[in-house]
């Protein structure tokens, strides 16, 4: 087992979810390479090979736009997420790249106190390896459920 690789990838995943859960959304695009791709879709779309996404970005700039829209344009009630990521399987593609598949669950906590299991599924990641500067080249968030409650504002 490549312990260094495992630590590098799990550290990236941990830093990624903590940034979101701590409302450091401005840091979120920085977890991707410049031309990084990010997609949230459902297992049904993914398995049927359908291209539709719930969120789709093909650059860090598009992710930055998502953050500024959330901060300055979109209206949604105060809420936060708590991510749990586990069971990460890692496969080295070459010296600089690895593929990682993880399970994740997100509890959404509303300002009213209502909490719900908001989302669960898989992260299908392709990662450019560079120690502590490792970044996602691609992150596909595949939701196990076909349905989303109310709205999905904060990224997964």
């Amino acid at each position: 087992m490549d312990v260094e690789l495992q630590v590098t990838v799990e550290n990236l995943l941990a830093r990624y979810v903590h940034a979101i859960d701590d409302d450091r959304l401005e840091d979120w695009p920085g977890f991707f390479v410049d031309k990084g791709r990010y997609r949230i879709t459902t297992a049904e779309n993914y398995e049927r090979g359908l291209p539709l996404s719930i969120i789709y970005a093909d650059s860090r700039a598009m992710l930055a736009d998502r953050v500024s829209a959330l901060r300055h344009a979109n209206i949604y009630e105060a809420q936060r997420y708590r991510h749990t990521v586990s069971s990460t399987l890692i496969e080295r593609i070459d010296g600089n790249t690895a593929r990682a598949t993880s399970n994740f669950q997100v509890v959404r906590i509303m300002h009213t106190g209502d909490s719900m299991l908001f989302a669960g599924g898989r992260y299908l990641d392709r990662i450019r390896l560079d120690g502590k500067d490792s970044r996602f080249e691609e992150k596909i968030v595949v939701l196990d459920s076909c349905s989303v409650d109310t709205l999905l504002a904060i990224p997964l």
Binding site: T42, N45, R48, L50, P51, S147, V148, D149, L151
Partner: peptide
């Protein structure tokens, strides 16, 4: 051509 779908639950 169908591109995909999803369901949104409204309270």
């Amino acid at each position: 051509k169908i591109l995909g779908g999803y369901t949104q639950v409204l309270q």
